[in-house]
């Protein structure tokens, strides 16, 4: 089972180091030829830049929304607010095609499709519920007594958040930001609908490249993406884990 999962990855990664144009496995010779080509391709560099812009935007938007929501839910005395929390997960269960089309017609009517903003909103739709859940779980471990102490010593509610709550949820925020970035980085369908020539993200460009002809650069990009995702996941798992550990000591 595990082999089945890993096999395509192995093929992909090894072929990215291939010395020839063909998609042969195992490759005849190893080289960094395609990596060099990737680094020299203006289209690919733009796609990487786009992905980073969209990913960063997604982080900012989803983390801000999640933070506001988590504080809102905590401070609200109304019971139905807490019951509504699962509803925020809804975007995760809608087919991305449906979301993509819906957003396209929405943004299209304002002529805002093909902008970074539209892709960021789409990605935040997915990333926010997840980062909200992470932040909520981190908030259950916050010592709110410290908030009382800070208010008592003259810190305004906003300053209190920065001075004593934020340091307690830092790791959770970091993890949630990384996961938001990964979600944005790998999301393809909505980005395909909403991106234009200048705002293509990496998966969109890869798909375009592949559909025209088998481009070995795609292997390179995929390998880089996989590495990035694995590193990010390990980092975020580690930061949440450290957070737990620190609290239990």
């Amino acid at each position: 089972m595990f082999l089945l999962l890993v096999a395509p990855l192995v093929v992909l990664i090894t072929t990215s180091f291939a010395g020839s144009t063909s998609f042969q496995f195992p490759p005849q010779e190893l080289s960094l030829q395609w990596y060099v080509e990737f680094a020299q391709s203006q289209t690919w560099i733009t796609a990487v830049k786009n992905s980073i812009i969209v990913g960063t935007g997604t982080i900012i938007l989803s983390t801000t929304l999640s933070l506001l929501a988590a504080f809102g839910v905590r401070q609200s005395d109304v019971t139905w607010v807490a019951r509504l929390v699962p509803v925020t997960l809804m975007p995760l269960f809608l087919p991305p095609v449906v979301l993509g089309v819906a957003l396209l017609s929405f943004f299209g009517s304002y002529n805002l499709h093909q902008t970074y903003g539209s892709i960021i909103v789409a990605h935040a739709l997915w990333a926010t519920p997840i980062s909200f859940l992470i932040i909520q779980s981190v908030m259950t471990q916050v010592n709110w007594g410290l908030q009382d102490a800070a208010l008592d010593l003259g810190a305004s509610p906003l300053k209190t958040k920065f001075e004593v709550i934020f340091p307690q949820i830092r790791q959770g925020l970091f993890a949630s930001a990384l996961i938001a970035f990964i979600i944005s980085l790998q999301e393809f369908i909505m980005a395909l609908f909403l991106s234009g020539q200048d705002t293509r993200t990496i998966p969109v460009l890869a798909w375009t490249a592949i559909s025209q002809m088998l481009d070995p650069i795609v292997n390179v990009v995929s390998t880089l993406l996989i590495t990035l995702v694995v590193v990010a996941l390990v980092l975020s798992a580690f930061s949440i884990g450290l957070n737990r550990l620190a609290r239990q000591l």
Binding site: G145, L146, D148, A149, D152, A155
Partner: peptide, 20 residues
């Protein structure tokens, strides 16, 4: 008057020192 504008200060039972 909110706590941050009051001329009082509490020493808490478990002290609530800022750990960071």
């Amino acid at each position: 008057v909110p706590p941050y504008n009051r001329d009082t200060s509490i020493v808490f039972q478990n002290w609530e020192l800022f750990p960071h």
